[in-house]
Simulated scan of single mutants.
Amino acid sequence: MLGELPRERSTLLIRLMGGRRVLREAIEELRQLPEDAPERAIALGPLLRFRAALVEPGPATPEEEEFVMTTQELVEQFIEQGRKQGMAQGMAQGTIELYEARFGPMPPALRSAVEAMRDLPTLRRWHLLAGTGTRDEVHDAIATDPAGRSS
């Protein structure tokens, strides 16, 4: 039985296939994982598709209603994560476009660093610099920024 599995991260994906208490507990554990946890990437898609199917009009069982309520925070986290990723991608693209409008084609290594960056404050700083700084200042900032190396 799934309820007999230990409550460990290594069993989380299997326990998400359980029902009632086991599922509730597994969803809570999933919710607590870091945004970049591989279990989140694997489980969120199927969980959200299942949830969307349950939200469709029609009678729902108490278990289905509970599942919808239990997963609401996951949906909100998923939306927020998507919003942040979209903002980062837009800021990165804007930085590249601004750089290229002022200085010509961005070198591939810098382009890669900008596209890989997900930290919004860093991207904002680079974007402002691309609009106000010199070519060398932009290169130095992107090449030497500790946040740029850690993404």
Rank of each mutant, 00 (worst) to 15 (best):
P57R: 09
T134F: 06
G133I: 12
T95C: 12
P62D: 09
M87N: 12
I27K: 05
E65N: 11
E76F: 14
L120H: 03
L98G: 07
A147C: 04
E63L: 13
F78N: 11
Y99I: 05
G90Q: 14
L54M: 11
G45E: 04
P38I: 06
H139S: 06
R51E: 05
E8I: 13
R40L: 00
R7Y: 08
T70R: 09
R125Y: 01
R51Q: 13
A101C: 08
E97H: 06
L48F: 08
L98A: 09
R49N: 15
Y99L: 05
E35I: 00
L12C: 12
A41E: 08
T132H: 13
P6N: 11
P38E: 13
A88W: 00
E100A: 14
T70K: 03
L30C: 11
P146W: 05
P57F: 02
E73T: 08
T144M: 09
G19T: 04
R125G: 00
R31V: 05
R125N: 04
G131Y: 02
V114F: 02
E137W: 02
I142G: 00
G82S: 10
E4M: 04
E39K: 09
V55L: 09
Q93P: 09
P108T: 06
T132F: 04
L74P: 12
T134V: 11
P108I: 06
I79D: 09
I96G: 03
G94K: 13
Y99E: 05
S150Y: 02
P57T: 06
F103I: 05
Q77S: 10
G82F: 01
E100V: 13
R125D: 01
I27D: 02
P121R: 06
P46I: 03
Q93S: 13
G58V: 14
E137F: 02
D36S: 12
R111F: 01
E65L: 15
A143F: 05
R111H: 08
A60D: 04
P34H: 04
R111G: 05
R31N: 13
E115T: 14
P146C: 14
V68Q: 02
Q93W: 04
Q32N: 06
S112W: 03
D140V: 08
F67T: 08
A109C: 05
L33A: 09
P38S: 12
R49T: 14
Q32V: 03
M87R: 06
V22L: 03
G148Q: 07
A92Q: 01
E28L: 01
V68L: 12
P38K: 14
L54D: 02
P62Q: 03
R9P: 00
R51G: 03
P146L: 13
R9T: 10
T134Q: 12
P6C: 10
M117G: 01
P57D: 07
P46D: 07
A130F: 00
T61G: 07
L74F: 09
F67N: 08
A60T: 10
G104M: 06
A88T: 12
A147M: 13
Q89E: 13
T11P: 00
L128E: 15
S150C: 10
G3M: 11
T61R: 03
